[in-house]
Amino acid sequence: MRRFILLIQVMLIFMVACDVEPEGFTIRGKLSNAAGKMVFLTSDEYRDSTLVSPEGSFTFFGQIPEAEFLYLYVNPANSVLLLVDTIDNLEVNGDAEDLFNTFEVKGSKNAEAITELYEKFADRLAELRQIAPPTPDEPDSVLLAKRETAGKIITNHRDYLRNYVRENISSLAVLPALYQSFDTRSYVLNPETDYELFKEVDDSLMANHPGSKHVKQLHANLIEVKRKIDFEKSRPKDVTENAEAPDFSVPDPEGNEISLSSLKGKYVLLDFWASWCSPCRIENPTLVNAYEKFHSKGFEIFQVSLDKSKDAWVKAIEKDGLKKWKHASDLKFWQCVPARQYGVQSIPANFLITPDGKIIAKNLRGAALEQKLSEIFNK
């Protein structure tokens, strides 16, 4: 009798154990036109497959260390992207022969968000394909109309993506939206022209998913993008008279950021100098005289130093009596960002800027500076 009871207990334990699904994620669903075929679930680091039943059903059980993007397909040329978390229980249905346009996902907010994202993309793609390809004898007016139509479709999708990104900004579901493309030449959203949006995503995902390899990759990519943007801004430019004065923001001696645009409304002499530059130091008394004579009439001086040593820079300001006006430096020597923006190749160098931000004169030294200021203020 005791053996019989023990046998029953073992059988019950076995039955319960068989009824408990393994720890991890589950993906179930039905695929039409796939009976008897293999369906695959893959990523760079994960690969699984299972046989679709005669009724079209399939089931995956799997374990992943963190939320992962997995491709589901019967034919790799017609796959769908799923965002699968470690314990998700998802249902995926669709037509295996046209999975991209027919799939539906239920079971998680993230997966459903990506489904919506790809539905919108498929709709826009269908709209673009309705535009007839250009022909050799097509009038320019027709070609222009087609381009305008395509441009509106892409602009509408771009607006949708920006809204989608902000609505899902703390979720990994935001990542596919950043890299959607209608062709192989460019993305709808661009990390350079849309840098601020990408930065918002990066900040949010680094706070919410710091361990994700996808988030780490985005973060690393964005650092490179920022370097490229900064480099382009700092490239020497041919800054000519009557041109718009490029704006910049650099720390003052106290470490507070100060921008050129903060001085708009006054005539500003933007002067590049350094404590180690003898001609600059010789020119400084001229600046002091001009400031004392014209400051009350709306004249300001903004000196940007190409120093490497903060101590030497600050001492030179004190010694030459220059504390009356604004000073700034990034202490990068000849790699000084504002100097590169203005194409400064030697110092001293200066630019006289109007109250509305236009450059009206360059390299005014000695008597030439006072003469120009007299023309402006003593009319």
Score class of each variant (00 low, 15 high):
residue 126 A to C: 08
residue 121 F to E: 01
residue 106 K to S: 13
residue 123 D to G: 08
residue 101 N to M: 02
residue 126 A to H: 14
residue 90 L to R: 03
residue 136 P to V: 11
residue 108 S to W: 04
residue 113 A to Q: 02
residue 136 P to W: 10
residue 141 S to I: 03
residue 101 N to E: 04
residue 129 R to Y: 13
residue 113 A to V: 02
residue 100 F to L: 06
residue 90 L to S: 03
residue 119 E to Y: 12
residue 119 E to K: 15
residue 93 N to I: 09
residue 135 T to M: 12
residue 88 D to H: 10
residue 122 A to M: 06
residue 88 D to L: 08
residue 131 I to C: 09
residue 147 R to F: 12
residue 113 A to F: 05
residue 126 A to N: 13
residue 91 E to D: 11
residue 94 G to A: 03
residue 102 T to V: 01
residue 141 S to C: 05
residue 95 D to M: 00
residue 122 A to Q: 04
residue 124 R to T: 13
residue 122 A to I: 06
residue 135 T to K: 11
residue 114 I to W: 01
residue 87 I to C: 10
residue 139 P to R: 04
residue 113 A to G: 05
residue 138 E to F: 11
residue 118 Y to V: 05
residue 130 Q to I: 11
residue 106 K to Y: 13
residue 112 E to T: 09
residue 98 D to H: 02
residue 94 G to M: 01
residue 141 S to Q: 08
residue 105 V to W: 01
residue 133 P to C: 09
residue 97 E to C: 01
residue 125 L to Y: 14
residue 85 D to M: 10
residue 93 N to G: 08
residue 146 K to A: 11
residue 126 A to L: 12
residue 137 D to L: 14
residue 143 L to W: 09
residue 110 N to P: 11
residue 115 T to K: 07
residue 134 P to G: 03
residue 105 V to Y: 02
residue 95 D to N: 00
residue 140 D to S: 13
residue 131 I to T: 11
residue 133 P to R: 07
residue 88 D to C: 07
residue 134 P to K: 04
residue 126 A to R: 15
residue 119 E to A: 08
residue 100 F to H: 02
residue 107 G to I: 06
residue 142 V to C: 03
residue 84 V to D: 01
residue 121 F to Q: 03
residue 141 S to T: 03
residue 130 Q to Y: 12
residue 101 N to L: 03
residue 148 E to C: 07
residue 104 E to C: 08
residue 133 P to N: 10
residue 146 K to F: 07
residue 142 V to A: 07
residue 110 N to Y: 09
residue 116 E to M: 13
residue 142 V to Y: 01
residue 139 P to K: 06
residue 148 E to R: 12
residue 93 N to A: 09
residue 124 R to F: 09
residue 95 D to G: 00
residue 147 R to V: 07
residue 99 L to H: 01
residue 118 Y to C: 03
residue 145 A to C: 10
residue 133 P to T: 07
residue 99 L to P: 00
residue 89 N to C: 11
residue 88 D to E: 07
residue 126 A to E: 12
residue 139 P to E: 05
residue 144 L to Q: 07
residue 87 I to A: 14
residue 137 D to M: 13
residue 138 E to Y: 11
residue 133 P to A: 13
residue 120 K to F: 10
residue 126 A to W: 10
residue 146 K to W: 08
residue 114 I to S: 01
residue 143 L to C: 06
residue 140 D to Y: 12
residue 144 L to A: 09
residue 148 E to A: 12
residue 92 V to L: 02
residue 92 V to Y: 00
residue 139 P to M: 06
residue 96 A to C: 05
residue 135 T to Q: 14
residue 104 E to L: 13
residue 134 P to N: 05
residue 121 F to D: 01
residue 130 Q to W: 10
residue 116 E to R: 14
residue 147 R to C: 09
residue 84 V to W: 02
residue 111 A to Y: 03
residue 130 Q to F: 11
residue 93 N to S: 10
residue 107 G to V: 06
residue 146 K to R: 15
residue 138 E to G: 07
residue 142 V to M: 06
residue 138 E to T: 11
residue 148 E to Q: 14
residue 127 E to T: 10
residue 104 E to W: 09
residue 128 L to E: 09
residue 126 A to D: 11
residue 104 E to D: 10
residue 103 F to H: 01
residue 126 A to K: 15
residue 125 L to E: 11
residue 118 Y to D: 04
residue 97 E to R: 00
residue 125 L to P: 06
residue 120 K to V: 10
residue 100 F to D: 02
residue 128 L to W: 12
residue 124 R to N: 10
residue 98 D to C: 04
residue 88 D to W: 07
residue 112 E to I: 06
residue 87 I to N: 15
residue 142 V to F: 02
residue 141 S to D: 05
residue 87 I to H: 15
